[in-house]
């Protein structure tokens, strides 16, 4: 088991998180498309931390089960939290109004998706992509 993390404070940290994510994806043996998708998911989650929580952390684990290996990404922050998770998981809902893929986009990019959030305490998003 390998674990590595990047803390997100400034916008440049998003790039560092992407880079680390992409390297690990390559290491696990993801296809070029899946590497790019994984990096995009890292980007989205890191940007969420940067925009809404001021600071937080992105960490990666290489995981294995019986017949496949994959990469798990955990994004943690102590920000304001999300009041209505169902709402932000709907397509077409973005608070920043920009062209964000948002959480539904992250869910599409990855295979497994989980989110725990509590108002005024923080948010943890855990996603996994398996090698195809």
């Amino acid at each position: 088991m390998e674990k590595s993390c990047v803390s997100i404070k400034i916008e440049l940290d998003i790039v560092a998180a992407r880079q680390l994510g992409r390297e690990l994806a390559k290491q696990v043996g993801f296809s070029v498309v899946d590497q790019a998708r994984f990096a995009t998911a890292v980007s989205e989650l890191a940007r969420n931390i940067y925009l809404y929580a001021d600071q937080g952390e992105i960490s990666f684990d290489i995981i294995k089960n019986m017949n496949q290996s994959g990469l798990r990404l955990t994004a943690t922050d102590k920000g304001p939290g999300i009041r209505d998770i169902s709402q932000v998981m709907q397509d077409g809902y973005t608070t920043s109004g920009g062209l964000g893929a948002g959480l539904p986009g992250v869910r599409r990019l990855m295979d497994d998706f989980d989110i725990i959030s509590e108002e005024n305490i923080g948010t943890t998003v855990t996603v996994v992509k398996w090698k195809r």
């Binding site: 070029v32 498309v33 077409g92 062209l99 893929a101």
Partner: peptide, 20 residues
């Protein structure tokens, strides 16, 4: 590779339109 990277969001947008 660079071109591929720029297409990722189009893919996401396409999936979103599909779902909508």
């Amino acid at each position: 590779r660079f071109l591929l990277e720029t297409m990722i969001y189009y893919g996401l947008a396409h999936q979103e339109y599909q779902a909508l």
